[in-house]
Design a protein around this nucleic acid. Sequence first.
DNA 1: AACAGTTTCAACCGCTTTATC
DNA 2: AGATAAAGCGGTTGAAACTGT
Length: 268
Amino acid sequence: MDVNKSGSAVQTQVKEQHNENEMGIRKGPWTVDEDTILVNYITTHGEGHWNTLARCAGLRRNGKSCRLRWLNYLRPDVRRGNITLQEQILILELHSRWGNRWSKIAQQLPGRTDNEIKNYWRTRVIKQAKQLKCDVNSKQFRDTLRYVWMPRLLERVQPTSQPSGVAGFLHQTGFQGYETEWAKPNHSYSDSSSVHFQAPSNSDHSDSSGSVHTIEKGSDPCPALNNHNHMLEQGTADQSLESFWTEEHMWFLQQLSDDLEIKSNSLL
DNA sequence: AACAGTTTCAACCGCTTTATC
DNA sequence: AGATAAAGCGGTTGAAACTGT
């Protein structure tokens, strides 16, 4: 959304008047002029002390609003545009580990803001959970993401990768600091004949069953997925998370996650 | 073309944590 | 040690953009 690009000057003026409170503090979308003032002021004086900054810069905004505008939009190193495939994997992985710690997750994705990641999670991932008819915080959905979806995304990113390549990928994307479950010896996500997913016993959110789930590669459990894989390899499909989730995928994932649930329960 | 429904994301709100006096 | 202000964080909202009919 960019209010600066739409609406007539008159409409904008009316809205601006409406968005001022009795103290003369403005709220709502920022104008181009306000952005310019804020950028120029920070370029000269640096950031911080936001209430003082707002006052000295002559902005009729509170400090919080200035800080948010700068951090989420005006900072020169803010990365705009779609979340890449690599970033999606990283977000899924980090969220499985840290939960809704958006700021912490954002620190591992250079140029991305906590707000952006939070929005991504709410608009894309939660949407998919709803389509799977499960709660986004349920074990069922977490397992589906962790043991089905993320390995497949990784295979798309690094088609020839070995297990150790996962750690390498995470390193390449700028993420350092902990040993991913996939880099551990008990996780063989890509061998010659099948794909195994072993639920780790020491993950923050996983169960302790350590149950192993195997999908025989030759059995082609979901032709739609493989077809999509082919499209990605040919560069004919949008490389986004949601583009994977067709109705057929949903059915497949639902079956698989139901199976995971049953097996996990039987081991308790 | 017009309308309704849905999605996206910038911005706000309220709470917690940290810094300063 | 307590009070106050500032900064940071996650949840929520609402308007614009998009999509379908």
